[in-house]
């Protein structure tokens, strides 16, 4: 199958997944509103660099991407259980094309909860991150959606059952929560401080956050992109390995 045909096959799978667009749109916005109400006064702490809602919104954006990506895994597990996935596997479409169709749909779909959340956020006074800040945040959202989808896909291919859904959700949630998601590194203590310091997703969060709490710089951007690329390389390799293992 040539490059163009492969792209068309990928796109066909992306479109199919678009049927499930609305799922998970609201959850990150609800989390965002809930958390800013409960913990909004944290920004009174000495050393807290920005209003709490500006601080938190990139995290909720990434959570939305995590949910969307994990949903890709749950949907795949359902497709495996119901036999739909076999239909894809007996087609001559190369395995990477099938995988690309699955995870790229997650990248695109993760923009939907993000845009919804941003509209609500701006309505309640979240700082405008500038066009560059916004584009970087959205790029990071797509990247994390893809990472989460690779994670979900890997688990779906391993367990072949929707009962693995909590693992798919929890993995991404943990990865995002053990960063500077809720407070700056300087205010974190103990093990969380250590984990957040070395968790590559901290760089991803900071890249998405920079426009909301200040101005965009290359120095704050590239570590996030490198971290994303690393996560993508590892998790897509795992997912592809799962694809090759699931059938001949």
């Amino acid at each position: 199958m040539g490059w163009r045909k492969s792209m068309e096959a990928t796109w066909a799978l992306v479109r199919r997944a678009a049927n499930e667009l609305l799922r998970g749109v609201l959850a990150p916005t609800i989390f965002f509103l809930g958390l800013t109400s409960v913990f909004g006064a944290l920004d009174n702490l000495a050393g807290f660099p920005a209003p709490y809602k500006d601080w938190l919104i990139p995290v909720s954006l990434l959570q939305g991407a995590g949910f969307t990506g994990a949903a890709t895994g749950v949907n795949l597990a359902r497709d495996i259980e119901q036999g739909w996935f076999d239909r894809l596997l007996v087609s001559p479409a190369p395995r990477p094309v099938i995988l690309a169709g699955l995870v790229l749909s997650a990248a695109l779909r993760s923009l939907i909860p993000a845009i919804f959340l941003l509209i609500v956020g701006f309505a309640i006074g979240v700082q405008w991150p500038g066009l560059d800040g916004l584009l970087i945040a959205l790029l990071v959202v797509m990247g994390m959606g893809t990472v989460a989808a690779c994670w979900g896909t890997t688990l779906a291919l391993k367990y072949r059952s929707q009962s693995a859904a909590p693992l798919m959700q929890a993995g991404m949630l943990l990865l995002v929560l053990t960063t500077t998601a809720y407070a700056p590194l300087a205010l974190l203590t103990g093990w969380l401080h250590t984990v957040a310091r070395y968790n590559p997703v901290t760089q991803v969060v900071e890249a998405a956050r920079q426009g909301f709490i200040g101005s965009v710089t290359w120095g704050n951007t590239w570590p996030g992109l490198v971290a994303l690329a690393g996560l993508l390389a590892v998790l897509s390799a795992l997912a592809l390995r799962g694809m090759h293992r699931t059938a001949i």
Partner: peptide, 28 residues
Amino acid sequence: IGVALQEAALDPLMTGRELIRLQATLHG
């Protein structure tokens, strides 16, 4: 080969025409 497996796995949200077109795309 063409394969029709037991428990025909078909996406209930797709139309018959969409399904065959998707299949055609997957076959290049």
